[in-house]
Simulated assay, not measured.
Amino acid sequence: MFFVINKIEHAVHSNDGLHNPKNPSNPMVLGIYRTQSKTALFTVYSKKAYGEFWDEVTQKKIPRRFWIPEMKAFASQKAAEAPQPPFIFKLTVVGWIFVALMIATMGLIVYQEVKPPVPKSAIYTAMEKAPVVGDIFFGHYEKYKEKRTPIGAEIGFGWFKIVKVEGSDFYLSKSMEMSKTSKPKEQLNSSDYETETLPALQLSEQTGYNIRFKSADGLTEVYISEKK
């Protein structure tokens, strides 16, 4: 962001009754100024004007340490007579856009904090509940001969039913109709299940969107995407 400070000249005054304290033979003048500060977002004028005495011959400013009381009084008088600035503080077009964006952002943050939570869907709520005997789920299983070796793995898509729970072990039966490829759940049998269960599985992940079971040896995994 750029930042510019301008020195605005309001008036120049002479006073024959005052003499240059540094070079008495050189005439001097009093300049009345105001500071203007500008950025991309705003413009600011100094509220009070101020005076500076200048040597007209050398064109150099006379330091304040050389000012006599009469010079200070004259400078204060003329500074007080200077016209008022057009404004003290004013936003630029970019500044107004920035303020509007900040207000919108803060409003959005406040809204996000106070708005009521979105009700969870029935499917999401059902998936969050702890699995129990009798629950029926849709998903797929992967059964490997060797850990992390997909060659020769058995994969099936369809419905699963929890038939037994012992501590942290879950025993799931596969539907009598399992597909080797992904199909819509409506096309697969969800009523008849095998009497033999998969190996004991432990719950390794559960959210409102998915449930994952995994055997202790890591060779069998069941991924659940929906509860019946």
Rank of each mutant, 00 (worst) to 15 (best):
K145L: 13
Y144N: 06
K174L: 05
P21H: 08
V222S: 06
A49V: 09
R34M: 04
F170Q: 09
N23C: 04
F2I: 02
P21M: 12
G31H: 13
K90S: 05
A216S: 10
E186C: 01
T195L: 09
I109C: 01
F137Y: 14
K72V: 11
V12I: 15
Y209L: 01
A122F: 10
E142N: 06
I151G: 08
M71K: 10
D217Q: 03
E186V: 08
A75C: 09
N20V: 11
L101M: 15
K129H: 04
Y141K: 05
I62C: 02
E186N: 07
S182F: 06
Y223I: 02
K22D: 03
Y45G: 09
Y33L: 00
S179R: 07
S225R: 07
I103F: 15
G95M: 14
E194H: 10
E194K: 13
V4W: 14
K164Y: 13
V132T: 08
Q112P: 00
P116V: 10
K47V: 05
L41C: 06
D55Y: 13
P21L: 14
A73I: 11
H19Q: 04
V94C: 03
W159V: 06
K180E: 09
S37W: 01
F66S: 02
K72R: 15
T35C: 01
P116W: 12
I32C: 01
I224Y: 03
Y124K: 12
L198E: 08
K60C: 08
E177P: 00
E221C: 07
R34N: 03
W67L: 04
A200R: 13
A40F: 13
A11F: 08
F53Y: 13
Q202C: 08
A73C: 03
K183I: 05
E81D: 12
Y193L: 04
P119T: 06
A80I: 10
L219G: 05
T220P: 00
V29C: 10
